[in-house]
Write a protein that binds this DNA or RNA. Structure first.
Length: 571
RNA sequence: GCGCCCGUAGCUCAGCCGGAUAGAGCGUCUGCCUCCGGAGCAGAAGGUCAGAGGUUCGAAUCCUCUCGGGCGUACCA
């Protein structure tokens, strides 16, 4: 990164000696796709061709002629075909960066880009009506990893879970538990009826069970616990409250346990109800009213979104007097901004696509800085079992819980699978592949490279070969060695690119390349058994690769094992 | 109808703030351990980047349209 800045300045210096360069022109530097072209390249000559009315190649040559570069840092600078200027780092620079990597160790890759900035990442935010599903898993892992990425570039990050434990949903939940409880505790038994699950299976439920009640077995578990604790004393309860609160507590316990298995710990659980209790919801509605974009019609309160670029208007308070979700959502975002967060990142499933534009409209009307709000929409997860799609619905009880998924494939594989694709694409999660063919799973490739380096380091130590950051790296000249150094040294910029884009999958791609470069190095360049100085230098390089793998996996929330179960001998 | 996302190798996907020869994994085929962990390495085959226009010195990438898939578009939560 420092190198990029250095070259940018050098180029600007050269450009300042030329006529006709537009004011404020900034040269761009990129790593060429093809390694042969160098470490960094600029296309600025081609961009300037229009303004200077000269051939790009000529301009590039003129720039190159004016460039003053430190030979200690840049070994080569060449002008090629259409008008690129390619730069190649000096070996010395690479060796210095390698030493820096080893010296920084577990801190390598951390930066201060976000220093002094506070970010709130809101994710999961599932209401306590049932266990987390596979869909929540993608949300949870994405949110947590984005939070990790932000922390690594210096942000002060708060992980927040927003939930609603009031309203119709919870009443139905309570009534469902009550129905099951009556079924369990009525000595004489209760009348029953049939309901259908999402897969059309029939379920026998008590007659008092709501038709749209929750059919999952976890409801029965909760009812059983109540029966054990209270006997049949709750049969005379006046309302669903004891059932609802027991259900809520039990379900939250389950949810927290599931998140913990994935290594996720929330900082704040934010209850929507608190926004009503504090008067924040009412205050926001009043403030919006003052903007003139609120009106009454047929007993409901409307937000005039049609005047703000939307197709129609939006109800904020129903004629029943009950607010829709929009209103507390708006109040919640006002609250977040009010708490002083510089970035408010929401991780939402694709089904929420329609809600956030309204929130942003409201924030702007209220003169709040809506630009602080970033919404990350991820597409749905398709779960495949036996090559067939598994359909999911919490209420209808045919879902695969996130817990079951973790048990089946393990937390590391689960995290990896949820992160390996761009959030904006549908994710195909093939259970059979994740589990049965785990030896083909790329997460093991990364972990294996790490474990292998640990093994080599142990063996080296046992025969008295140790190393530190002050090796003579100039002994590392093999193509595979230099390629690995290049890859390792890129880690900080790869990390910050992933963080700034909020795209964890980039980190996975980068780490896969690290493991690949390491494997090539490992096969081409022996460490143990070589002359001592070479062994030490190569060991140091391997340890640098280990640093990057360990730190990269830490960002992704995946463990970096020091050893892995040995496989059976190959035939 | 309207809004957002997607269409790239047999399959699953990178690449998308325009750049140099479109990449990877899996699958298929061929080689490779006397040796630091073979969950590996080396190599091969496999492409009208959905289609058509446009902008540009240059387009998988930007714009328009068409086709195909997903998700929304409730006084549901």
């Amino acid at each position: 990164m420092a190198m990029k800045e250095y070259l940018k300045e050098a180029i600007q210096q050269a450009l300042s000696q030329m006529d006709g360069v537009p004011e404020g022109f900034e040269p761009e530097l990129e790593a060429p796709r093809i390694a042969q072209h160098g470490d960094l390249a600029t296309n600025c000559a081609m961009q300037l061709a229009r303004h200077l009315r000269r051939a790009p190649l000529q301009i590039a040559e003129a720039i190159a002629a004016c460039l003053v570069l430190d030979a200690d840092r840049i070994a080569r600078c060449e002008v090629v075909r259409p008008g690129f200027i390619n730069f190649r780092f000096s070996k010395r620079h690479l060796y210095q960066s390698l030493a820096a990597c080893l010296a920084a160790g577990l801190q390598f890759g951390r930066s201060r880009k976000g220093q002094g900035q506070r970010a709130l990442v809101e994710f999961v935010s599932a209401n306590p009506t049932g266990p987390l599903t596979v869909g929540h898993g993608r949300n949870a892992v994405l949110g947590d990893t984005i939070a990790n990425l932000l922390e690594w570039i210096g942000y002060d990050v708060t992980r927040e879970y927003y939930f609603n434990d009031a309203g119709r949903q919870m009443r139905v939940l309570g009534a469902s538990v009550r129905g099951r409880y009556e079924q369990l505790t009525h000595a004489a038994g209760v009348a029953t009826k049939m309901l259908r699950t999402g897969t059309d299976a029939e379920v026998v439920v008590p007659a008092s069970f709501p038709d749209d009640g929750y059919l999952g077995n976890y409801i029965i578990t909760i009812a059983k616990a109540l029966a054990e604790k209270h006997g049949d004393a709750l049969l005379t309860a006046e309302d669903e409250a004891p059932f609802t609160s027991a259900a809520k507590a039990a379900i939250f316990e389950t949810i927290k346990g599931t998140l913990q298995r994935l290594g996720i710990v929330m900082d704040v659980f934010f209850n929507e109800q608190s926004l009503y209790d504090s008067g924040a919801v009412a205050a926001v509605l009043e403030a919006l009213r003052d903007t003139g974009y609120i009106y009454q019609r047929e007993g409901a309160t409307w937000f005039k979104t049609s005047a703000l670029g939307k197709d129609g208007d939006t109800v904020l308070v129903k004629s029943s007097g009950e607010p829709t979700y929009r209103l507390p959502d708006i109040a919640y975002h006002c609250d977040k901004i009010g708490r002083g967060f510089d970035r408010c990142i929401d991780v939402f499933g694709a089904d929420h696509i329609a809600t956030y534009p309204d929130i942003l409209r409201a924030l702007r009307l209220l003169k709040l800085d809506a630009d602080r709000v970033e919404v990350i929409i991820y597409q749905f997860v398709t779960l495949l079992r036996g090559g067939k799609e598994v359909k999911m619905s919490t209420r209808k009880a045919n879902f695969v819980t996130l817990d079951a998924l973790i048990t089946e494939v393990g937390a590391d594989v689960a995290r990896y699978f949820f992160l390996m694709r761009s959030a904006k694409r549908h994710l195909e999660f093939d259970l059979d592949l994740a589990k049965e063919a785990s030896d083909k799973n790329p997460v093991f490739y990364l972990q294996y490279a790490h474990a292998r380096i640990c093994s080599i380091a142990d063996k080296a130590a046992s025969i008295g070969i140790e190393t530190d950051a002050s090796e003579d790296f100039s002994l590392l000249v093999h193509d595979a060695e230099v390629a690995l150094i290049r890859q390792v040294v890129r880690f900080p910029s790869a990390l910050s690119a992933a963080a700034l884009a909020r795209e964890p999958h980039r980190m996975i791609g980068y780490l896969r390349e690290v493991a690949e470069q390491f494997s090539q190095f490992y096969h081409h360049c022996r460490i143990l058994g070589e002359p001592r100085q070479i062994a030490r230098a190569r060991l140091a390089l391997a340890l640098a690769a280990r640093v990057v793998l360990a730190n990269g996996l830490a960002v992704l929330g995946i463990t970096a094992p020091t050893s892995m179960e040995r496989r059976e001998e190959r035939p």
